[in-house]
Amino acid sequence: MSITVALTLTSFAAALVIGTVVAAFRVSPVAPLRAAGAAWVEVLRNIPLSVLMLGFYFGFTKIDIRYGEFATAVIVLSAYTSSFVAETVRAGINSVARGQAEAARSIGLTFPQSLRVVVLPQAMRTVVAPLGSVFIALIKNSSLAGLIAVVELTDMADRISFDTARPIPAFLGAAVGYLLLALPSGAVVGLLERRAAIKR
């Protein structure tokens, strides 16, 4: 369980940063950056996570990129989740009235500044709830780290089921574990949402 938590939190932090940068790329006035952002999102979110996981772990060793199991899981989960974060944040950016960005630029802020200081803080309010869903999806997606021998919750259930020859209780236990992680996350999202809404 602690590995699932560590995996999820580390990956989510990284995914938020990468995803926001990619979202900024996608709305950038510079065409090559927009293309790079789009490519990142489309490649990562359209390949099954299991394929990414095994592909990165086994495939990249062939070109001498090699990380440990946990590190690989974090990298792959971060990259994969970042594509969803990017789309969510981009939708948030688009939801902020155009005039906000124009006003920001008209007082002399550069594009990145206007994004950071004016647009993103407003976008984040509409984005909290959908990001919560992305986070909960990540909790569950972390189960695929078991594919590359990271002993997270599902993998643990796997092992217990073998040790006891009783898979049903073991996986029920895992299900309860995921619920215990996801339900409080949902509550935290609700809280953040209310906090973000107050200042509106």
Partner: peptide, 30 residues
């Protein structure tokens, strides 16, 4: 261009005040 825009003030039809900042913060931001 950003530097140049700083020297050109603009007032919009729809005000476009930064919605997440107070009036004072709107004025001190630039």
């Amino acid at each position: 261009l950003a530097k140049l825009r700083a020297d050109v003030g603009m007032v919009f039809q729809s005000f476009n005040l930064f919605a997440h900042k107070t009036v004072l913060e709107n004025v001190t931001l630039g």
